[in-house]
Lab assay of single mutants.
Amino acid sequence: SADYSSLTVVQLKDLLTKRNLSVGGLKNELVQRLIKDDEESKGE
């Protein structure tokens, strides 16, 4: 998976916004949300 932890919070929020995901929470939560979304989209 992508190394989201190396991105800035601003970059993470931009990715979340593009996916229509919540941008609330700490950086670690944003990273986990993106990883979870990646895993769910692979399952389709």
Rank of each mutant, 00 (worst) to 15 (best):
S1P: 13
S1A: 14
S1L: 13
S1N: 12
S1E: 11
A2E: 11
A2Q: 13
A2W: 12
A2G: 10
A2M: 15
A2R: 14
A2V: 15
A2S: 12
A2F: 15
D3M: 11
D3E: 09
D3H: 12
D3P: 10
D3Y: 15
D3S: 09
D3I: 10
D3K: 13
Y4K: 00
Y4P: 01
Y4E: 00
Y4I: 01
Y4R: 01
Y4W: 03
Y4D: 00
S5Q: 12
S5V: 08
S5N: 14
S5I: 08
S5P: 06
S5L: 10
S5M: 14
S6D: 09
S6K: 14
S6M: 11
S6G: 09
S6I: 10
L7G: 00
L7N: 02
L7P: 00
L7S: 02
L7Y: 07
L7E: 01
T8E: 05
T8P: 05
T8V: 02
T8G: 05
T8Q: 04
T8R: 04
T8S: 11
T8L: 05
T8Y: 02
V9R: 05
V9E: 08
V9Y: 08
V9N: 05
V9I: 14
V10H: 13
V10C: 12
V10K: 15
V10G: 12
V10Y: 09
V10L: 13
V10R: 14
V10S: 15
V10T: 14
Q11W: 03
Q11H: 05
L12T: 00
L12F: 00
L12S: 00
L12K: 00
L12R: 00
L12C: 01
K13C: 07
K13T: 07
K13H: 07
K13W: 07
K13N: 06
K13D: 02
K13E: 06
K13A: 05
K13M: 11
D14Y: 14
D14N: 10
D14R: 12
D14L: 13
D14V: 13
D14E: 15
D14C: 12
D14S: 10
L15K: 04
L15E: 09
L15V: 05
L15C: 06
L15A: 05
L15Y: 05
L15I: 09
L15S: 02
L16H: 01
L16N: 01
T17R: 15
T17F: 11
T17C: 09
T17E: 10
T17V: 11
T17S: 14
K18H: 08
K18A: 10
K18Y: 07
K18M: 10
K18F: 08
K18Q: 12
K18T: 07
R19Q: 02
R19C: 05
R19Y: 03
R19F: 03
R19S: 02
R19A: 03
N20G: 15
N20H: 10
L21T: 02
L21E: 03
L21C: 04
L21S: 01
L21N: 02
L21G: 01
L21K: 05
L21I: 04
S22D: 10
S22T: 07
S22Y: 09
S22R: 07
S22M: 07
S22H: 10
V23H: 07
V23Q: 07
V23M: 06
V23C: 07
V23T: 15
V23L: 09
V23P: 08
G24I: 15
G24N: 15
G24Y: 14
G24T: 15
G25P: 02
G25S: 01
G25E: 02
L26P: 11
L26S: 15
L26V: 10
L26K: 14
L26Q: 12
K27Y: 07
K27N: 03
K27R: 09
K27E: 05
K27Q: 06
K27F: 08
N28Y: 13
N28T: 10
N28P: 10
E29W: 03
E29Q: 08
E29N: 05
E29V: 06
E29K: 05
E29A: 07
L30D: 01
L30H: 01
L30M: 10
L30V: 01
L30Y: 03
L30W: 06
L30K: 01
L30C: 05
V31Y: 03
V31E: 05
V31R: 04
V31S: 03
V31K: 03
V31H: 02
V31A: 04
Q32T: 08
Q32E: 13
Q32D: 13
Q32Y: 07
Q32H: 08
Q32M: 11
Q32L: 11
Q32G: 07
R33P: 03
R33K: 05
R33Y: 04
R33V: 03
R33C: 03
R33W: 04
L34A: 01
L34P: 01
L34G: 00
L34S: 00
L34N: 00
I35D: 04
I35Y: 07
I35Q: 10
I35N: 06
I35F: 06
I35C: 07
I35A: 06
K36S: 08
K36L: 09
K36I: 08
K36G: 06
K36Q: 12
K36Y: 08
K36D: 14
K36P: 00
K36M: 09
K36V: 07
D37I: 03
D37P: 01
D37V: 03
D37W: 13
D37F: 13
D37M: 05
D37K: 05
D38Y: 04
D38K: 03
D38R: 04
D38G: 04
D38M: 05
D38H: 04
E39Q: 12
E39T: 08
E39W: 11
E39Y: 10
E39V: 09
E39N: 10
E39K: 10
E40R: 14
E40W: 09
E40H: 11
E40D: 12
E40P: 06
E40N: 12
E40Q: 13
S41C: 08
K42A: 11
K42P: 07
K42M: 11
K42W: 09
K42S: 11
K42T: 09
K42N: 11
K42H: 11
G43K: 14
G43D: 10
G43P: 11
G43E: 11
G43Q: 12
G43M: 13
G43V: 12
G43S: 12
G43R: 14
G43F: 12
G43I: 13
E44F: 14
E44M: 14
E44D: 12
E44N: 14
E44G: 13
E44P: 13
